[in-house]
Design a protein around this nucleic acid. Structure first.
Length: 592
DNA sequence: GCCGTTTTCGGCCCGACTGTTTTCAGTCG
């Protein structure tokens, strides 16, 4: 199994420890950058030699040697040496918002604080105030941070953050003088989880917008309220907490007030990713320009920022304008991750919500769904889909009221008899892939179905080798069309299977099986990086909602965002195909 | 520690806000 995550974690920890020790900050950045590069690598880092490692952007001779050592021995000398010097508890202190390396280092050196308990102790006895630059407000902020961290901490799933952001945007949009407002950040990029919500606003009366923002009833604490940036802690307690998949009770929301003329530069800047922005700035420098959130300006020796000395921007009103100055096409937000997008010559045609014309993974009351066959088909038709597949659970998913063979045969008859004008209703099953890779029904029954989605549901912590063999066996099965939620992960808690993804992708391509992006925001499985690998390999992708209730159709946009993050073009997604093409493809697996 | 169409040294993205200070350090994104 890929050891990329382990290696990346160690490099990341080295960076944190160097930071606490006050080492050269560029050395810190170098380790962070290398960690990210390794985490994003499609192939297993342990399979690469030093030369191949050094070919990775951000990895030089020294870091390559550390990785090779780790791959061979399971140790990383520098990491171990630093860990001997730096107490482990300092990591949790660094994670507190507002506490950085300087303060943590000071706490450690001056007050011998090595963990959260120690920090709480010197806050309580007041001795923390002995430290330089430590006043009553700073101490209160640290106390708040500790409390916030305990109650929330975790990142918010995309499907929870998106409706919250949209609600805030619509609320502030109504404020007098607001001209433009939109969310940016990782939310706009469609990341599977969100650290905080960034909202941009251009207004003729910025004070009114800021006040409306900071005075929302859900605001627990105003963290900052300056000229251009306000930041609040926003309560989520009005949401169904059970749906949050954790105990995230609040989220940080930032409002950035920007001049209308800088809208494009600001959207670019606050959409990120950070790494994408750094690349753009480097490119600006090479061209003799400087890029900030106000615009793209000619470089100057004047230390005053260009926007303050009235310099005329080369570009900045729209994102398109800025990209154009760089000789770049418009880069869709979802792929701004510094993963080769700045080499693009034209804007790639990525999949869009309107491209989707079918739903091939849906449940009815026959198993654990809430909808009848007719209701399901009617809802699908209302979305302008030409096809809906009824794929209830198979017998081993007893917790989901899976159908045994007799019930499935009866169900097939009902599905075939169902008629909703304007939409084709297909018979199918979401058949369990048992731990050994065999399917939950016999082949003669599977052959009667129009659509077979094979998914893992149980034994989701089996070891990677077994998981790979299990899923490969399902992909190689001649009657399987779609591999459903391939890893079975659940955000944020359940890791799911960790199969060798390149092997699955190669097999799926060979056997003409589509890999599913399950659009539910708790799944998003395949995940973005896997989608990218599958797309590059020429593998087919399905984006399905795994519908159990009417509102699950609304999750489609999260699946599409994940597809876009994986650079998925519409033609590679079977749900975009015409009815004739899709049905012909489904039948291919029934012909032989 | 990494990198190079100014290439083996000398750079390395840029600005806002807070809380502490009396001009700025630390943190964040």
């Amino acid at each position: 199994m890929s050891r990329n995550r382990e290696v990346a974690d160690r490099l990341e920890e080295i960076a944190r420890m160097l930071e606490i020790l006050g080492e050269n900050r560029f050395k810190v950045i170098a380790h962070e950058k290398a960690a990210r590069a390794i985490a994003d690598l499609p192939q297993d880092v342990a399979d690469l030699d030093a030369k191949q490692l050094e070919a990775i952007d951000g990895v030089g001779a020294k870091i390559a040697a550390k990785i090779v050592q780790y791959a061979n021995t399971g140790d990383m000398t520098e990491h171990a040496e630093l860990r001997a010097k730096v107490p482990e508890g300092l990591f949790e202190l660094m994670n507190l918002p507002g506490l950085g390396p300087k303060t943590v280092s000071l706490l450690w050196k001056d007050k011998h604080i090595t963990d959260l308990a120690g920090l709480k102790r010197i806050i309580d006895d007041g001795s923390i105030m002995d430290l330089p630059r430590m006043g009553a407000k700073t101490v209160q902020n640290i106390k708040d941070a500790i409390e916030f961290n305990a109650s929330a901490g975790a990142r918010l799933p995309l499907g929870v953050a998106m409706p919250v952001a949209e609600a805030i945007v619509e609320r502030i949009r109504k404020v007098e003088g607001v001209k433009k407002i939109a969310f940016a950040g990782s939310l706009r990029r469609g990341k599977e989880t969100i650290g905080d919500i960034d909202i941009l606003c251009a207004a003729s009366d910025p004070d009114a917008a800021r006040d409306a923002f900071t005075r929302q009833p859900e605001v627990i604490k105003v963290l900052a309220a300056g000229e251009s940036k306000s930041s609040v802690r926003f309560s989520l307690s009005s949401l169904r907490l059970a749906d949050l998949g954790g105990d995230a009770a609040a989220v940080q929301v930032d409002l950035r007030l920007v001049p209308e003329a800088s809208w494009g530069a600001a959207m670019l800047y606050f959409t990120g990713s950070k790494e994408h922005n750094v690349r753009l700035r480097e490119r600006a420098q090479k061209n003799g320009w400087t890029l900030n959130e106000y615009g793209l300006y000619p470089e100057s020796d004047d230390p005053t920022p260009p926007q303050h000395r009235g310099a005329k921007a080369i570009a900045g009103k729209t994102e398109e304008q800025v990209f154009e100055q760089f000789g770049l096409p418009f880069i869709p937000p979802e792929i701004r991750e510094d993963r080769d997008e700045l080499s693009l010559k034209t804007t790639p045609r990525l999949i869009e919500l309107d491209d989707i014309k079918s739903e091939l993974h849906a449940h009815t009351t026959a198993s654990d769904g809430r909808l009848s066959i007719d209701e399901l088909a009617t809802l699908a038709h209302a979305r302008n889909f030409h096809t809906i597949a009824v794929t209830d659970h198979s017998r081993s998913s007893f917790q989901a009221n899976g159908l045994d063979e007799d019930r499935l045969r009866a169900h097939i008859k009902r599905v075939r008899a169902a008629r909703v004008k304007g939409i084709a209703i297909l018979t199918g099953s979401e058949v369990d892939i048992l731990p050994d890779g065999t399917l939950d029904y016999d082949d003669d029954l599977l052959a009667e179905l129009d659509v077979v989605v094979a998914s893992p549901h149980a034994s989701l912590s089996q070891d990677p080798k077994k998981a790979t063999a299990r899923l490969l066996k399902a992909i190689e099965h001649p009657l399987v069309h779609i591999l459903g939620h391939p890893t079975g992960r659940l955000l944020p808690a359940r890791k799911g299977l960790e199969p060798a993804m390149p092997e699955l992708i190669a097999a799926a391509k060979e056997h003409n099986v589509a890999l599913e992006i399950n659009a539910h925001w708790k799944r998003l499985d395949l995940r973005d990086t896997h989608v990218r690998q599958a797309v590059e390999a020429g593998c087919l992708i399905a984006i399905d909602c795994d519908v159990h209730r009417a509102e699950h159709f609304d999750n489609l946009r999260y699946g599409v965002l994940t597809g876009r993050r994986g650079w998925l073009p519409p033609e590679q997604c079977i749900n975009t195909w015409s009815k004739a093409r899709l049905h012909a493809w489904l039948k291919e697996k029934r012909a032989s």
